[in-house]
């Protein structure tokens, strides 16, 4: 199949796409978690299995990033994703990242996109062994260490800032 699309045509077509919200790429509708178009309400729609997986997903990204010594903004740059979204992934259990974001992270981590889509709550849990392993990982990865100096300083500064308001 040959496509002869001129630069002018591509430019003309790209212009209206600029602000359009187009979401393609759900390769299998049967795997969609929750109801379509209700992403903002996903917190109440996650099954217990999805919640465990989502927790493990956030922990995975957090621990991998720290192991590599990346700051959040550095990983966001590397994966070409929005920093706010990365923060949400690591901190907010109710947040379901866009499939594109998961794909970008899978590329950087060198892991299976399909498994990360499941972990991130984008697709229903089909691989039960992955679900069980995700729960185990989430439990084992819970830190029991005291805060290090950086964490302590960051916490103190933020508390001080909050106290001033």
């Amino acid at each position: 199949m040959k496509m002869n699309l001129s630069k002018e045509w591509l430019t003309k077509r790209a212009a209206p796409d600029d602000r359009a919200e187009v979401s393609a790429g759900f390769f299998n509708l049967g795997m969609l978690g929750g109801k379509v178009g209700a992403r903002e309400e996903t917190s109440s729609r996650l099954s217990p299995e999805q919640e465990s997986s989502r927790l493990a997903f956030g922990r995975l990204i957090n621990l991998w990033r720290r192991k590599k010594g990346f700051r959040m903004d550095e990983l966001a740059d590397k994966a070409k994703i929005d920093l706010v979204e990365l923060i949400e992934i690591e901190r907010n259990l109710d947040f379901i990242p866009e499939p594109r974001t998961v794909f970008q992270l899978a590329q950087v981590l060198g892991l299976s996109n399909e498994r990360l889509l499941q972990l991130s709550g984008n697709t229903n849990v089909r691989d039960l062994s992955l679900g069980k392993e995700a729960v185990r990982f989430a439990a084992r990865s819970e830190s029991v260490e005291k805060l290090n100096k950086n964490e302590q300083r960051a916490l103190e500064e933020f508390v001080k800032f909050l106290a001033e308001r």
Binding site: D17, A20, E21, V22, A24, G37
Partner: peptide
């Protein structure tokens, strides 16, 4: 089959 947020794009765009 269009996802709801892309309906407008497929019809108008």
């Amino acid at each position: 089959h269009s996802l709801p947020q892309a309906d407008d794009w497929y019809s108008r765009g």
